[in-house]
C-alpha cells in the first residue's frame, strides 16, 4: 500500500475523532501488517510521539509489525484447550510448516501463531484458519486444515456452496418446466411465469434459491396489490384457493419438478410469503 492510501486512512479517521487504534486497525487490514513507514506517517500526521504509536502497536496482539502470510492460522493455547492437548497440535503445525509459532512460511503463504483464548473453550482445542473455526482439533486433523487453508476450501462451506437449496418447479396443469436457465438470479436459474394485473400482462421472475423470493415484474405493479400469476405455456392460473399465512392473499401454487411436493408463493406484491410443501404431490 502506498503513502497516499495511508494518508487517506489517517484523514478519514481524524475527521470523526477516531483514535490511534482505529487508524492502525485499518492500516493493518490494508497491508496485513504495520510497516515502519506507516507508523512514522501516523505519528507525523496525528502529531503524537512515535513512541506512543509504537507502544500501542506492540501492546495489542492483534497488531503485527512483521509481514504476515496470505493465510493466517491461530491455534488456541488457553487453559481449556491446553489441557485437551493443544500443545501437541501446535507442535504438529510447527513441524508440518517448518516454522515456530509467530512465524511465517518462507513462501509467505501461511502465518502460524498461538492465541491465549478464543472464548470457545467447550469446543477446544480450537484452531482458526482465515476466520474459519475448527473445533475439537486433533493432531491428525492438522494436515487437513493446512490443505483447506492452502486451497481456500473449508469443509463446512464447501458443502453449503455446492448444494444450495434450489427449487425447480413446473406448471401443475401442463407439467412444463417453469425454469429459465438463460436468465440467472443470484447465480442460479430463475423461475419465469406470467403476471397480469389491470389488463397489463408481462413476465414475473422469482429466484430459485430457497429463501430469496423477491419477485421482479416486467411492469411496475403497485405495492400491496394482488397479481394474477399464471403459466407462460398453458396460461392456466396458479391460484388454487389457498391463502398466504402472512397476509391472507391468494397463493400461487406450482409443482416441484421432481413431483415431490408443491411450492406456493404469495400473489401480493411486496409480500414474501411462501410455502414449500414436500410430500404433497397431489393438488
Amino acid at each position: 500500500m502506498d503513502k497516499k492510501g495511508i494518508l487517506d486512512i489517517i484523514q478519514r479517521n481524524s475527521k470523526n475523532h477516531a483514535g490511534i487504534i482505529a487508524i492502525l486497525e485499518e492500516i493493518q487490514e490494508e497491508c496485513s501488517y504495520l510497516p515502519e513507514e506507516a507508523l512514522r506517517l501516523v505519528a507525523r500526521e496525528t502529531g503524537r510521539p512515535l513512541a506512543d504509536i509504537y507502544g500501542v502497536a506492540t501492546f495489542y496482539k492483534a497488531f503485527s509489525l512483521k509481514p504476515k502470510g496470505r493465510h493466517c492460522i491461530s491455534a488456541c493455547l488457553g487453559t481449556a484447550c491446553h489441557v485437551r492437548g493443544a500443545q501437541k497440535i501446535v507442535e504438529e503445525f510447527s513441524q508440518e510448516l517448518g516454522i515456530k509459532p509467530g512465524e511465517t512460511t518462507p513462501d509467505n503463504e501461511i502465518t502460524f501463531e498461538t492465541v491465549n483464548c478464543l472464548g470457545a473453550c467447550a469446543l477446544g482445542p480450537i484452531v482458526v484458519s482465515d476466520g474459519h473455526y475448527f473445533a475439537n482439533v486433533t493432531a491428525r486433523k492438522v494436515g487437513e486444515i493446512l490443505r483447506d487453508t492452502r486451497e481456500g476450501t473449508f469443509g463446512s462451506d464447501k458443502a453449503e456452496e455446492a448444494h444450495p437449496f434450489l427449487i425447480e418447479v413446473s406448471c401443475p396443469r401442463c407439467g412444463k418446466s417453469l425454469m429459465d436457465s438463460e436468465t440467472s438470479v443470484h447465480g442460479h436459474p430463475s423461475i419465469l411465469i406470467t403476471a397480469s394485473m389491470n389488463g397489463k400482462t408481462g413476465w414475473a421472475r422469482i429466484p430459485s434459491l430457497y429463501g430469496h423470493f423477491s419477485r421482479t415484474h416486467e411492469h411496475d405493479f403497485p405495492a400491496d396489490a394482488i397479481v394474477q400469476l399464471s403459466c407462460p405455456h398453458c396460461a392456466s392460473s396458479f391460484q388454487d384457493g389457498s391463502r398466504c399465512v402472512e397476509c391472507g392473499a391468494p397463493l400461487a401454487t406450482m409443482r416441484l419438478a421432481d413431483g415431490s411436493g408443491v411450492f406456493r408463493i404469495c400473489t401480493r406484491t411486496g409480500c414474501e410469503g411462501h410455502l414449500l410443501d414436500i410430500g404433497r404431490a397431489e393438488l
Partner: peptide
C-alpha cells in the same frame, strides 16, 4: 517523547521505537 513502553506482560520494555536512535 523519544522513548516509551513497548509490548506487554513479560515482554514489556522501555526504549525507542524500532530500537533505533530516535530522531526526536
Amino acid at each position: 517523547g523519544a522513548i516509551g513502553f513497548r509490548g506487554r506482560g513479560e515482554e514489556r520494555s522501555i526504549g525507542t521505537p524500532f530500537d533505533v536512535q530516535s530522531d526526536v
